[in-house]
Design a binder for these strands. Structure first.
Length: 309
DNA sequence: CGCTTTTGACCGGCGC
DNA sequence: GCGCCGGTCAAAAGCG
């Protein structure tokens, strides 16, 4: 995990050494400045600044501890994965079903994520002709354990055409075709993880040749199409490739988002965008602006009254 | 009435 | 060749 995301809310309009600059903040401070003398404003803002800085330090410390814990766990996991893959490579796994069972064991070992296995699947040569380039993506969706349905709300519409109980998992596997079929060749399989029944494993075969119906109704249409409000979880790496932990129970998230490679989330551009979005979200929140203005006003009034006394 | 879901039958690939 | 298994089909049932 990259710790370079700086939750620096040091938005002092005097020094402008902050990473978050929005017009909304500037307008607020100008308005406040008109109402009070520059001296009073400076005193109140300095006090508020100190408080926010203290909060900022505390949050940064929490983040640092979380990152350290994550890095420790991640290095341990990678160590285990490398040991296991070293063993498994020594065993010839040319037979399709053995590959699949190996695949399933990996699935159970990497809870949470999207795995693009189009380039790593060993049995691609056994797929039917014309389907060689079919993209296979696996998604892990954590759901309510009491929810026994095999429905994955990924934005697309699906038609169920079969259900089977497979040998290696007592939970039935459901087969879906895209409702745009036969023009859209995409299929998906959904099955609960044998290890953790609260996790749905959705395997997507092929790529949609039409837009995501839910995308047109997206509440946030950001410049690069990523709806951060619906990506509440962390990124992780599996032995098979990039994976992203998702909570698809959140409304409005499509697999199109989920299939974005992890590198996008690691890029400085993404971090900058994330910070800007956080600032923008806060600044667009009327209650936040009101509370901030009220707090500053009260502090300034309090200070001016105490000076008079 | 039309669409979707359910479910048993069927098919083809694979291992023995 | 036979049995197992995953995947698909299609008729019946369910639902709005």
């Amino acid at each position: 995990m990259d710790t370079s995301i700086n939750f620096d809310l040091n938005f002092n309009p005097m020094t402008r050494n902050n990473g978050i600059k929005t017009k909304e903040f500037e307008i607020d401070f100008i308005d406040i400045g008109r109402r009070f003398s520059s001296q009073q404003e400076a005193g109140a803002l300095a006090a508020e600044l100190n408080r926010v800085n203290a909060e900022n330090k505390r949050l940064n410390e929490m983040l640092r501890v979380m990152c350290e814990n994550y890095n420790t766990l991640h290095s341990q996991m990678m160590e285990l994965v490398s040991k296991n893959s070293g063993k498994s490579r020594n065993v010839a796994l040319s037979k399709k079903r053995k590959c699949e069972s190996e695949d399933n064991s990996n699935t159970n070992g990497t809870l949470g994520g999207i795995v693009d296995s189009s380039s790593s699947e060993g049995d691609s040569s056994k797929k039917p002709k014309g389907d060689l380039e079919a993209k296979t993506t696996r998604a892990f969706i954590r759901t309510d354990p009491s929810d026994t349905s095999l429905i994955v709300k990924d934005g697309y519409q699906w038609r169920k055409y079969g259900q089977k109980v497979t040998r290696d998992n007592p939970c039935p596997r459901a087969y879906f075709k895209c409702s745009f079929a036969p023009s859209c060749p995409v299929k998906k399989k959904v099955q609960r993880s044998a290890e953790d029944r609260s996790v749905l494993v959705a395997t997507y075969d092929g790529e949609h040749n039409h837009p995501d119906p839910s995308r047109t109704e997206a509440k946030l249409d950001l410049t690069n199409g990523v709806t951060f409000e619906t990506i509440p979880c962390s990124a992780s790496v599996s032995s098979l490739g990039p994976s992203i932990t998702l909570d698809l129970t959140q409304p409005g998230l499509s697999t199109h988002d989920a299939e974005r490679p992890k590198r996008e989330f690691d890029s400085p551009v993404f971090h900058q965008f994330l910070v800007e979005q956080m600032a923008s979200t806060l600044s667009k929140d009327p209650s936040f602006k009101t509370a901030l203005a009220t707090a500053i006003s009260e502090r300034i009034l309090h200070d001016s009254n105490s000076e008079k006394l």
